[in-house]
Design a protein around this nucleic acid. Structure first.
Lengths: 143, 143
DNA sequence: ATGGAAAATAGGAATATTCCTATTTAGGAG
DNA sequence: CTCCTAAATAGGAATATTCCTATTTTCCAT
């Protein structure tokens, strides 16, 4: 699989080098639909680069997320990572832990007003919902 | 200092016991204005209960946050915790790491619509902004 | 006040994440 | 193509967070 040219360009334009490790991490991310845990990612990447370190994985996920290529979803029990296809947000099930992607983004100028008032320069935003997913709703009383 | 009766009641009504550890954790949280790191909290609590374990601290912060008494703000380099005075959200400075509280909450039914459409039961939401704080804006090119 | 069950704790083990540093590599200049 | 430098890597150390379990504590019923 050849890495998306846009991503390659984004990296280089931002002053980051296109290393084998980065290429593989992006490849693995792009092959998966759902947000993966660091461990899941690590195993899949390790299949192709057995010597890769966890630090390299985390460091690059940080870089990718900084330039807007990946998302890091901070959740209890292990953060999840995904390739950014289109800006969106997440729902986290408090029972099964599953992370679901929500279409669209309901955050607009109205939601950023307070920060502006306080003279803060907003570059990014993160919006997460949590509760019970459709599957877990029906059996909230169980285990 | 006597612990806020509302909190004590909230704990018990939710089926949680009012232990010495919980009392002290809440006391320490209530004495601090800004969100504290787990380590800062740990030291302050340890002054009063030298044998307390980090697990107890984390476990109780989880409980307190579950019943809406505390907030956990997940950020790079160590999560921050605060007592919930009034529902609000945060701004995280990408340069100095400081966490600022924003007044009010701009999240309404419109922001939850997509989740409802997907048959998800929303119980909580989290909204975070990041960028440069007022102090760091003026010297973005440095350090 | 006393007994007992469920909940909570302390500590240590297991994970998850970040930091540090000597070595290697990507990518530009010649 | 070769050299050079800044950026990136591997690995291990250091933190941060969660899990596990034997023991202790809270609190309800008596």
């Amino acid at each position: 699989m050849v890495i998306n040219q846009n991503i390659a360009k984004l990296l280089q334009d931002s002053g980051y080098k296109l290393t084998r490790q980065r290429r593989v991490i992006i490849e693995v991310l792009s092959k998966n639909e759902r947000p993966l845990t660091a461990l899941e990612l690590y195993h899949q990447v390790k299949d192709k680069i057995p010597t890769i370190s966890q630090d390299t994985l985390y460091r690059n996920l940080e870089v990718l997320s900084f330039i807007g290529v990946a998302n890091r979803i901070r959740v209890r029990g292990g953060d999840r990572f995904e390739l950014v296809q289109q800006h969106h947000h997440h729902f986290i099930c408090l029972k099964c832990g599953e992370v679901k992607c929500l279409k669209g983004c309901p955050i607009g100028p109205g939601q950023l007003a307070e920060a502006r008032k306080n003279d803060l320069e907003v570059l990014f935003h993160n919006f997460e919902l949590s509760g019970y997913c459709d599957k877990c709703r029906s059996c909230q009383k169980e285990g």
